[in-house]
Simulated assay, not measured.
Amino acid sequence: MKIRTNQQWLWAVPVSLAALVMAGCQERPAPQKEQVKVEKQEASSTIPLIQAKVVSVKLSKPEACDAEGCTQYEIQTVKSNLKWVDDYFIDRVKKADPIAFSTTPNEKINTAEGASPNLSQSSTYIRFVSQQYDRATFAIQTYTYSSGAAHGMYHQEFVNFDLKNKKRLALQDIMVKGVEQQLLNTLYDSNSIWLEQHSIEREKLKLSDNFYYGANGIVFVYPLYELASYAEGMTELTLSYSALTKLIKAEYLPALPKYPSS
């Protein structure tokens, strides 16, 4: 009986060791803090980092002619890792210059004998500007010259996207409801010296839906001639992020540093 008992004890040893080894090999649940960190990383990974390059658009009519003369077209757009963004800009340029994409044959030009036909120009250039987490900014630069004009006309439109919801952001989308006049007054006060020098009264200033996120604040952009002369170019009025905390929705503002109160 004694020998049998020892044999049973010896047999139980490897079984106990195996149980300990199996218990040690089992994966332990991650601490709650680590799980939260992983979830945040996974959430942030859903916002893509934009990679974009400028490419030329193939046109059916790089030079379109009618009875009055011809217009030369040049269009460049962005090719990025976001198809819905690329499609947005292709749709924009097709709507802006449908003649350049038309397959209708050119008309014969009516010109006096020995005279050169009228030649105009139209160019569009789209580029990627910047990205701030789930917001991205692009710019559409256009230039047109009509034959015989003293100079051409140019314009730059900034297009801001909400990458999370895959939509373009208008000023009404990012602004707190009901603060239009307050925003306008704050914009005027922040740029009053320049505006007064150009004889722009408070009542004449309007909010521009053409804006972009600058280094120090939101920059409102105005067309040629609206606030200044052609020589001065397009006007840009900046409103600091600190002045926008109660005027722009929090999710559309960058995080501002918090200083301890004295």
Results as ranks from 00 to 15, higher is better:
1 M>Y: 10
4 R>E: 08
7 Q>S: 03
10 L>F: 12
12 A>Y: 07
14 P>S: 05
16 S>C: 14
20 L>D: 00
21 V>P: 10
22 M>Y: 15
28 R>N: 06
31 P>Y: 05
33 K>Y: 09
33 K>N: 12
34 E>D: 15
35 Q>C: 05
35 Q>E: 07
36 V>P: 03
39 E>G: 03
39 E>W: 11
40 K>N: 11
49 L>H: 09
51 Q>Y: 11
52 A>N: 03
53 K>D: 10
57 V>E: 12
57 V>N: 08
58 K>T: 13
58 K>G: 07
59 L>T: 04
62 P>V: 00
67 A>P: 06
69 G>F: 04
70 C>A: 09
70 C>I: 13
73 Y>T: 06
74 E>Q: 15
77 T>D: 09
77 T>E: 10
77 T>I: 13
78 V>L: 14
79 K>I: 06
83 K>P: 08
84 W>F: 10
84 W>A: 05
89 F>Y: 09
91 D>F: 10
94 K>N: 09
95 K>P: 08
98 P>W: 01
99 I>V: 15
102 S>A: 10
102 S>V: 00
103 T>G: 10
109 I>E: 00
110 N>H: 12
122 S>A: 06
130 S>W: 00
136 A>I: 04
140 I>D: 01
142 T>R: 14
144 T>G: 03
153 M>D: 15
158 F>R: 09
158 F>V: 06
159 V>T: 14
163 L>G: 04
164 K>Y: 06
167 K>I: 05
167 K>Y: 08
171 L>S: 03
173 D>K: 04
174 I>M: 08
177 K>W: 05
181 Q>E: 15
186 T>G: 04
192 S>V: 13
192 S>P: 06
193 I>K: 15
193 I>V: 13
194 W>R: 01
197 Q>C: 00
200 I>P: 01
203 E>I: 02
204 K>V: 00
206 K>L: 09
207 L>I: 05
208 S>A: 01
212 Y>R: 06
212 Y>P: 02
213 Y>M: 05
215 A>R: 11
216 N>C: 00
218 I>E: 01
219 V>W: 01
221 V>R: 04
225 Y>M: 05
225 Y>N: 01
228 A>P: 02
229 S>V: 00
237 L>T: 00
237 L>C: 02
238 T>E: 11
238 T>D: 02
242 S>D: 11
243 A>T: 08
246 K>E: 12
246 K>F: 03
249 K>F: 04
249 K>N: 02
250 A>R: 12
250 A>K: 14
250 A>F: 02
250 A>P: 05
251 E>K: 14
252 Y>S: 02
252 Y>L: 02
253 L>A: 03
262 S>H: 06
